[in-house]
Write a protein that binds this DNA or RNA. Structure first.
Length: 761
DNA sequence: AATCGGAAGGTTTTT
DNA sequence: CCTTCCGATT
């Protein structure tokens, strides 16, 4: 043990301390923002271990991988690596996925079942809708997917769904009575593919524990001590699983804050907090109300905002910290200007107060808003990192390669099969695939069986096509054989090459192709790291190299935010949802406009509006020192710009805490200078050429616009003119100019300050 | 069977 | 605006 127990307990305040050492029965901790919630959880784990509890008996559940990793790190800090490693800490989904790998056979799943992410399951739903010849405008994929997901997370099976009169009449009145059949067929197809979607991980865990008392009992014995983070975000399925696991020992500790419940849209149910009382009548309640994170101004502003919500648990968050600055505001003419003003403000603060980039974050409601901010930061040469957005793992080329891996591990994975059977092109076209699909349905077998032996199933194809299918199967089988002896990295490289995937992308010879190859290389590098890290850890042991199977077990549950290379000094950009649990000295919340934040979909019902307000509350309480709220008067939406109204949330901040823009007198001549000149930039609206995304924003800033070292003879790329060669460089500092010869337009004289040149070589 | 172009549709939020 | 899907063309 690294520290003496009493030493680390001294670092807690009274309430935190009591919550940590309370050792008798169920515990609920209601923790205001910034009050040391994670601290209580980690210290509690450390405390249990110090009392001699076996780490193997502790289960700690979080919602994001990031939160899980942070918790693990902090526990390791407290008590050292050895014991902490054996505590089960992870997201609900990853922990349950692990359990299902072991116990899934009881439900008829092999241990190598595939996890479908939401893209995969939407593809499958799309296929089913078109197979059923339904109007795919009426039966929109996302609507159906949502409906099914809601059902599953409430543990409503396909039969329950079809037999529930309320559900049926709801579907009938929305003109979609056949959702029940789509749901049934969807589950059947997942089964046939030995696949589970995200909701199945919860649904099946519940089925396992309710249908197999022996299995339940053994996990109850294993997980004697259960801790749950962000309890307010649990959905019905998660709630019941925890309840079952805890039923024997009732040594359960849940931590949450009803004011930060922001996942209602995916079935999270605040009443789980309220029900805790009735589930565990002898529970102890602790309230953490002292905020250690933020200034008085921020705490008071957030408190005031949340009072506009009717439904909430009473608590008084307060702080001893200094008052700090007033909340700042930015009012911009357009979303582009908003980006510019935010970037300028970051730049100024940085200079005036000697701050670093990583002290800043820009938060927004929707991922799409990142673009104008990105552009502005890039122009100001401020490095940034985007969390979330289009996930690295959802890029086409990555999905394709991963699909090869998936098929090697599980040949029943039909989504993977369909994705790659003709990628790169192998002459297996639509007609053939259609025949295979039909035969699979007809015989009730998996598509892999059909293509392995088309003649057995009477599939009518010519010998040329037969040979092509045979070659495909032979290739996959050879990968399967190789996979038995190679580690994850070796087999991955082998597949990337032998499948022809890398070659076909290289042959494209386009900038997109190059960036796709880079992405694949990035994935392979990550796999190399994964493989080698495992070797390091197992020092002494006989070659415990990580296998492809092990890699693939994790990958479906990973998101971009999990690539933690953020030791760099960068401004963070993310959605408010993604920011939960994090803190930053200086926070910008952008796009505070009606219909955007609060979102247009949520302003019609009280509960949804209140969730938006909690979201705003979460955003405000991320900040330690300053908050700046910004909105734009016009914003691009679907190609043309629309006028917007300031968000109601702006008005809900107490006047004494915010620095509102002074109302401008009507004086046409004076008003002109900044605003009109900005509007005259109209042409800029059209030039929104998005740079190809680099992986998680790495090097998005530094080398793309750092033209300080530009030299004669270099190859460069310009957003509009394409590639060119530097003919001459002259001038210094801000007036540095270059003459560049572009293939498209010939010689151009460019002021480097403005032209965003990218150095190629 | 592959490729290209036009049309249509889509923005909440995440595991 | 951007991505994805479908059909027509080669």
């Amino acid at each position: 043990m690294k520290n003496n127990v009493n030493d680390f307990l001294k670092q807690l305040n009274k309430e935190q301390h009591d919550a940590v050492v309370h050792n008798d029965g169920p515990v609920m901790v209601i923790a205001g923002a910034g009050s040391g919630k994670t601290r209580v959880l980690t210290y509690r784990i450390a405390y249990l271990l110090s009392k001699g509890v076996d780490p193997f008996n502790i289960l700690a559940l979080t919602f994001t991988n990031k939160a899980a990793r942070e918790m693990k790190d902090r526990v390791i800090n407290l008590i050292g690596d050895g014991e902490a490693r054996n505590v089960w800490m992870g997201t609900f989904h990853s922990v349950f996925a692990k359990i299902l790998r072991i116990e899934g056979h009881l439900l008829g799943y092999p241990s190598n079942y595939t996890i479908y992410d939401s893209t995969d399951s939407k593809r499958l739903i799309r296929n089913i809708i078109s197979d059923m010849n339904l109007d795919n405008k009426l039966y929109s994929r996302s609507f159906v997917a949502n409906r099914i997901s809601m059902a599953k997370s409430s543990l409503i099976s396909t039969t329950d769904y079809a037999n529930d009169p309320d559900i049926q009449s709801a579907d009938e009145s929305s003109q979609k009575p056949l959702i029940k059949d789509i749901y049934t067929s969807y589950q059947a197809r997942l089964r046939r593919a030995d696949a589970m979607d995200f909701d199945d991980l919860l649904f099946n865990t519940y089925m396992l524990f309710s249908g197999f008392p022996k299995a339940l009992y053994s996990y109850q014995q294993k997980f004697k001590y259960i801790l749950v983070d962000e309890y307010q975000d649990t959905n019905h399925a998660q709630y019941l699983i925890i309840k079952k696991l805890a039923a024997n020992n009732e040594f359960i500790c849940v931590v949450g804050d009803d004011a930060q419940s922001i996942y209602g849209f995916r079935g999270a149910n605040i009443s789980n907090i309220l029900n805790f009382k009735s589930d565990y009548p002898d529970f102890s309640l602790f309230k953490l109300e002292q905020n250690y994170r933020s200034t008085k101004t921020i705490v008071n502003a957030a408190n005031k905002v949340i009072t506009y919500n009717k439904d909430q648990i009473k608590k008084t968050v307060w702080t001893d910290n200094h008052s700090g600055d007033l909340i700042g505001t930015i009012k911009a003419k357009s979303d582009n200007e908003e980006g510019r003003l935010v970037a300028e403000s970051i730049f100024e603060k940085k200079m005036n107060k000697q701050l670093t980039n990583n002290m800043f974050t820009v938060l927004y409601r929707t991922n799409a808003q990142s673009r104008s901010i990105e552009e502005a930061l890039r122009q100001k040469n401020i490095p940034y990192r985007i969390y979330g957005g289009l996930s690295f793992y959802s890029r086409k080329e990555i999905k394709d390669l991963l699909s090869y891996f998936r098929l090697v591990i599980n040949q029943n994975d039909e989504d993977a099969l369909l994705r790659i059977i003709n990628v790169p092109p192998k002459g297996i076209g639509k007609t053939t695939i259609e025949k295979v699909v039909v035969a699979a349905d007809l015989h009730g077998v998996n598509m892999w069986e059909i293509i392995s032996n088309p003649l057995n199933f009477g599939v009518d194809i010519n010998s040329g096509t037969q040979a092509k299918l045979r070659n495909f199967c032979i290739m996959i089988r050879s990968f399967i054989v190789e996979n038995k002896t190679k580690d994850a990295f070796e087999i991955a490289v082998h597949i990337a090459n032998s499948s022809g995937l890398l070659k076909s992308l290289r042959d494209e010879d386009t900038p997109e192709g190059v960036s796709r190859v880079e992405n694949i290389e990035e994935l392979l590098n990550g796999m190399k790291e994964f493989t080698e890290k495992a070797i390091e850890k197992s020092d002494g042991d006989l070659s415990i190299k990580k296998t492809l199977n092990e890699f693939m077990e994790d990958v479906a549950l990973l998101t971009d935010a999990d690539n933690d290379d953020d030791d760099k000094d960068k401004v963070s950009l993310m959605t408010i949802h993604a920011s939960k649990g994090l803190e930053f000295p200086h926070v910008f919340i952008v796009g505070l406009e009606e219909n955007l934040f609060p979102s247009i979909q949520s302003i019609s019902t009280r509960s949804e509006l209140e969730e938006e307000r909690r979201l705003f509350y979460v955003a405000l309480t991320r900040a330690m020192e300053t908050v700046t709220l910004s909105h734009a008067e016009t914003r691009y939406r679907w190609g043309n710009f629309t006028f917007t109204e300031p968000s109601r949330f702006l008005d809900e901040i107490d006047d004494s805490l915010i620095d509102r823009p002074k109302p401008v007198m009507f004086n046409t001549s004076q008003k002109s200078s900044p605003s009109i000149s900005n509007l005259s930039n109209h042409g800029n609206f059209k030039k929104r050429n998005l740079k190809p995304l680099t992986i998680s924003g790495v090097n998005s800033s530094a080398d793309s616009s750092n033209t300080n070292n530009l030299q004669e003879g270099m190859s460069v790329e310009h957003a509009n003119f394409g590639r060119g060669k530097v003919v001459a460089v002259e001038g210094n500092g801000p007036n540095k100019k270059a003459t560049v010869f572009f293939d498209s337009v010939g010689n151009k004289n460019l002021l480097l300050r403005f032209a965003k040149l990218k150095i190629i070589s």
